[in-house]
């Protein structure tokens, strides 16, 4: 595996699959914090889910609801499949100048301390040194769409309150 001299410094590193990864990225981006989403894959759940009022309140201020609206299976109550939720939101993250998305990559040889991470980011051929001030692995978050959105917002808000 090839090492290289370039390193990645990022305030927040988000790894793991599922909707929470993308919601965290949008929540902190809306408050000016750059993040890197690594190795995200959408869940394959195509069962429509009604977004509860708490999820709506979380997503609306960040413009996320407007992005999702064309993909909803019903508008009132707002209903969407987790698959469509993630596919649409992923594109929105890619377009966000504060969010970087790298698919098919993973972190190895990570050293975690004080909530941050120092390690290597690899695509299997090349490895970049990575220094993240904060780190979250969303694979521990709920698979339920609403709960994942709540957990993501709670994480994002706590992180922002620690920074500001």
């Amino acid at each position: 595996m090839e090492a290289n001299s370039q390193t990645i410094e990022i305030p927040l590193l988000i790894v793991g699959s599922g909707p929470a990864a993308l919601v965290i990225a949008k929540v902190v981006s809306g408050r000016g914090l750059p993040s890197l989403v690594v190795g995200h894959q959408a869940t394959d759940n195509a069962e429509p889910v009604v977004l509860d009022s708490e999820s709506i309140e979380i997503l609306e201020p960040h413009g996320v609801l407007s992005v999702l609206r064309p993909y909803a299976t019903a508008q009132d109550p707002f209903t969407i499949t987790p698959l469509a939720f993630e596919n649409a939101l992923k594109h929105h993250c890619v377009a966000d100048m504060l969010v970087t998305v790298y698919d098919r990559m993973h972190i190895d040889e990570a050293d975690m301390s004080n909530g941050g991470l120092h390690g290597g980011l690899t695509d299997g051929n090349t490895t970049w040194g990575i220094y993240a001030d904060a780190f979250v692995d969303v694979s521990e978050f709920s698979v339920d769409l609403n709960t994942a959105v709540h957990q993501a917002a709670a994480f994002g808000n706590e992180l922002m309150s620690n920074i500001t």
Binding site: V94, V101, Y102, D103, R104, M105, T126, W128
Partner: peptide, 10 residues
Amino acid sequence: EKKKYNANKP
């Protein structure tokens, strides 16, 4: 790679 091309990468 056509549709399998991954643009979200270094």
